[in-house]
Simulated assay, not measured.
Amino acid sequence: MQLTIPTLLTLARILMIPVLVLVFYLPVDWSNIAAVTLFILAGLTDWLDGWVARRFRMTSSFGAFLDPVADKLMVGVALIIIVQRHPEIGLALSAAVIIGREITISALREWMAAVGESGRVKVAWAGKIKTILQMVAIGFLLYGEPLGPIPVLDIGRWLLIGAAALTIWSMLSYLRSAWPAMRSRP
């Protein structure tokens, strides 16, 4: 297996996860700024690895597998540390919905591919909007402090709840698309 630049960027994103956790818990005033910066940097590497892979035809099966894994790990870990810092029912339920959906849809995609029906479970608009809301919410929640009169934490809470609602919608859309294959007999 040859490691391409996009795959190296994806691996770097995975290596940022323990650094994010460490920085988040540092007992210094700037830990929230550093955590948000790392999260944004991870998002930029996600965009960059995809762009480089497509632009320079550096796609690989390993990269196609690893990229969504890196994304889900980063989001899952970020949600866990946020909920640990802010143990509130709205955040905990939203995080559980988002993480549960990722596990469910990953399993669904794997199963649909195994039965030759992977074309039924393609990314939908609700999933894309959910991802944007989720990433912005996580950034706000990692920062967690007011910026002057702007209630960053409250905005992050509402964005994450909105992302969780879209998560349910997109999951139901995927399941509805897959239902005919799930109903058929083996």
Rank of each mutant, 00 (worst) to 15 (best):
1 M>Y: 10
2 Q>G: 03
2 Q>C: 00
3 L>M: 12
4 T>W: 12
4 T>S: 15
5 I>T: 15
6 P>N: 00
7 T>C: 06
8 L>C: 06
10 T>Q: 02
10 T>L: 04
12 A>M: 10
12 A>V: 11
13 R>F: 02
14 I>M: 14
14 I>N: 07
14 I>K: 08
15 L>D: 02
15 L>R: 03
18 P>I: 02
20 L>H: 13
22 L>P: 04
24 F>L: 04
27 P>R: 05
29 D>S: 12
31 S>W: 05
33 I>T: 13
36 V>N: 09
37 T>M: 12
37 T>C: 12
41 L>H: 05
41 L>A: 15
42 A>E: 07
43 G>K: 00
46 D>S: 06
47 W>Q: 00
47 W>M: 13
47 W>H: 04
47 W>S: 04
48 L>T: 14
48 L>Y: 10
49 D>K: 01
51 W>N: 06
53 A>C: 08
56 F>C: 01
58 M>R: 12
59 T>W: 05
61 S>H: 11
62 F>C: 12
62 F>S: 13
62 F>N: 14
62 F>E: 14
63 G>V: 12
64 A>D: 09
65 F>Y: 13
66 L>G: 14
67 D>N: 14
67 D>W: 14
68 P>I: 13
69 V>G: 09
73 L>Y: 11
76 G>S: 15
78 A>W: 01
78 A>I: 09
78 A>R: 05
78 A>E: 04
78 A>K: 04
79 L>T: 13
81 I>C: 15
84 Q>A: 15
85 R>L: 09
87 P>I: 15
87 P>F: 14
89 I>Q: 15
91 L>C: 13
91 L>P: 15
93 L>M: 07
93 L>G: 02
101 R>H: 08
102 E>A: 10
102 E>V: 10
103 I>Q: 03
104 T>N: 03
104 T>H: 07
105 I>D: 04
106 S>D: 09
107 A>F: 09
108 L>S: 14
112 M>V: 03
114 A>S: 15
116 G>Y: 05
116 G>T: 10
117 E>L: 01
118 S>G: 09
119 G>T: 03
119 G>H: 08
120 R>Y: 07
120 R>T: 03
124 A>Y: 05
127 G>Y: 00
128 K>M: 05
128 K>V: 02
129 I>S: 08
130 K>H: 08
132 I>E: 01
133 L>T: 07
133 L>P: 07
134 Q>I: 02
135 M>T: 06
136 V>W: 00
137 A>E: 06
137 A>H: 07
139 G>I: 01
142 L>D: 08
143 Y>H: 06
143 Y>A: 08
144 G>D: 07
145 E>A: 10
148 G>K: 04
149 P>H: 07
151 P>D: 11
151 P>F: 11
151 P>W: 08
151 P>Y: 10
151 P>M: 10
151 P>K: 10
153 L>M: 09
154 D>T: 03
155 I>H: 05
155 I>W: 08
155 I>D: 12
156 G>T: 06
156 G>L: 11
161 I>P: 12
163 A>T: 02
167 T>L: 01
167 T>W: 05
168 I>W: 11
174 Y>G: 13
174 Y>M: 11
175 L>K: 12
175 L>P: 11
176 R>H: 06
177 S>Y: 07
177 S>P: 05
179 W>T: 07
180 P>G: 13
181 A>N: 12
